[in-house]
Design a protein around this nucleic acid. Sequence first.
DNA 1: TATGAATGAGCCTTCATTCAT
DNA 2: TATGAATGAAGGCTCATTCAT
Lengths: 219, 219, 219, 219
Amino acid sequence: MKKEAQTATTNANTVRATDAEETRLNILEVATEEFSDKGLSGARIDEIAERTNSSKRMIYYYFGSKESLYRAVLERAYTRVRSVDTNINIYDLSPAVALRSIITTTFDYHIQHPEFVRLVMNENILRGAHIGDIPGIKERNRKVIDNLRDVLSKGVSEGVFREGIDPIELHMTISALCFYNVSNRYTFAYGFDRDMSSTKALGRRHNSVIDIIESWCRA
Amino acid sequence: MKKEAQTATTNANTVRATDAEETRLNILEVATEEFSDKGLSGARIDEIAERTNSSKRMIYYYFGSKESLYRAVLERAYTRVRSVDTNINIYDLSPAVALRSIITTTFDYHIQHPEFVRLVMNENILRGAHIGDIPGIKERNRKVIDNLRDVLSKGVSEGVFREGIDPIELHMTISALCFYNVSNRYTFAYGFDRDMSSTKALGRRHNSVIDIIESWCRA
Amino acid sequence: MKKEAQTATTNANTVRATDAEETRLNILEVATEEFSDKGLSGARIDEIAERTNSSKRMIYYYFGSKESLYRAVLERAYTRVRSVDTNINIYDLSPAVALRSIITTTFDYHIQHPEFVRLVMNENILRGAHIGDIPGIKERNRKVIDNLRDVLSKGVSEGVFREGIDPIELHMTISALCFYNVSNRYTFAYGFDRDMSSTKALGRRHNSVIDIIESWCRA
Amino acid sequence: MKKEAQTATTNANTVRATDAEETRLNILEVATEEFSDKGLSGARIDEIAERTNSSKRMIYYYFGSKESLYRAVLERAYTRVRSVDTNINIYDLSPAVALRSIITTTFDYHIQHPEFVRLVMNENILRGAHIGDIPGIKERNRKVIDNLRDVLSKGVSEGVFREGIDPIELHMTISALCFYNVSNRYTFAYGFDRDMSSTKALGRRHNSVIDIIESWCRA
DNA sequence: TATGAATGAGCCTTCATTCAT
DNA sequence: TATGAATGAAGGCTCATTCAT
């Protein structure tokens, strides 16, 4: 896992810079696991350092403090989602198919990235204390909403969607249904003896979510 | 371990027993705030003690450890929800009105008890490590599901609801929409510049949630 | 185990006094176990109270403090030994038999009262801080030494014991051999894989101790 | 976990490593005093830290817990005895002189190392809970017993010792007489008004111990 | 850029003891 | 004589962070 990428860069500092970037990334990955697992206050710098290829000192060298490291982790997590839902090309699709595609992408992303879900939960426990420090979030979200608005209005004009649905309201609904499924997995699964992790259970829920939203939007 | 008895007794011990129960309750209330505010690892026993009418020592006298106190808080929070959604009398209402009533009750409870929402979030961050220790959760949930099943089947036989909706799936949907609204308030409100706390905003979302679920269930 | 003794006493307070004495004794017995088990600093007042028929408050009512309770325990333990080795009637026996009888009594007492051994160990760990407060110890010891002196001098004059053995030195030797056997049981048994508790092992050691001391004293 | 290596290395780390080893040793020395003085439960980490050149935090850095520190102290104490009684060269001496040499060495060691005696007492109060964790004790003891067996059998074949004396029994006897002399110093000295610390008193006891054991072993 | 050693502040917990009744 | 509730002080341990090299 060491020194494989980026070796083809051109400037003089290449090797060292690459090493440094690698170290940074390695720390970030381990920290993501730890913060996502235990939350900001539950995470331990020692624990992160131990599972890192480098040392505790390096964490401070690169990130300055536990909080800054947490912020870097949060930022990286949000950056990664961005790249996902920006990739959906909606304009080639019919409104119905586009909506379904958006739901599916969102649903799958949450399932495949529980660490993102947990980081967001934690950030809400912290009453959003750090999210304001992360650049680009609003821009990305604007784009998401714009997409939804386009899909909705296209659907309305084609007579397949009903009028009056607010795109933010729609996004909140999709998010809620996809998020809760992962975020509340433990208490819900226990309280209702309900499997929430198997492919079968997830497939069923996926269908429900699509069904719910389509029923709502349908003209 | 519960000291709820004796409240009607007449002998000298009564007063003291009441004092003790008061102390216990006072600790529990403060602890609920603290754990709901900072989570299990973020909460500080010193902090709780300070805001209590008693002392740090008393916390250990009554609850034994930080974790046990946390469990007591969690249990109390779950006990309180129970009393709420068991109180909805469904049998006197038409299926449509009953469903709407359930949604409204659930929606309002989450709004009015963000501390419950936060405790549940935290318990999920802990991967449900303590929920299994709390008695009666499954029983209460069974009753909730039974109620929903009754409403659904009554609605189906009356021709107002469609067939095939699983009551657990329905409950998960209602929960998700009501929970997310509070749980993700901070990140969502920031990310989308969306007011999520004003009466107006909540009223709007309330309508959406009812609309979403009704669209889904409607025959 | 309650209220069986002393019911025949004559003064007015009989019943209460008896109860009190019983409570005191019960505390003392439990405390003996606890102090002997864990030492002064290792013992816990809570632990003692719990295993008592009465309460923690009573311990303070009767004994005033942990240290005083410890002293009471120590005193009682020393009082009990006293009654034992004062009971050996030496004057009727030949010097050799008397000596052997003393050794056997001492040996057996240590085996049968490891709690006494442990209390003495603990008191030595405390550098004898409390033994001075216990009355009557020196008197009792004087008597023990006097007995030994008598046996020795009688043995010398009968030609069975050699001259020049100091009775205190002799007592120290007997004590050492009987005490160590119990006091160092755990480290010795482990270090040398030597059973030190079975009847057989104790019988063997008993013989050795007699043999050692007789060899030393023999003319 | 041991940092004894590197002492001969030449690079920059040498000095630091030595400092670390010094810190560790310093803690160990102070801890030996404290545990030997007060026992495991009576000892205070704060007290140790205060008398150390470093801090409480360092104690945990190097030893992890109070119990582990105690174990390290116990181990070191046992390691040190080992080096002593392994040093007696028995093969050049006549059996009688060898035996006397062993007794003297043992006697003197106990006098000069009351902290060792006290640690062993304490470990017995703990019912040998930790001695099993210390490596090498049995090996060392085997060697001690082997030496004694050699001396005994050589003495028997030369006609100076009598047959039938078990080397473990002999060792226990020597130990008991040397150990008690120090372990029970406080209670004995008080109870019998007997000086047990002056050179004169120790010389006298030393002679007695030699006399006792020689009488027993003599053919 | 990198590392082992060190630290102060604070955290959870426990203990002997006392108070109100 | 008896009891449950309460307490201050301290004890063991951990944490994020920094220093010397």
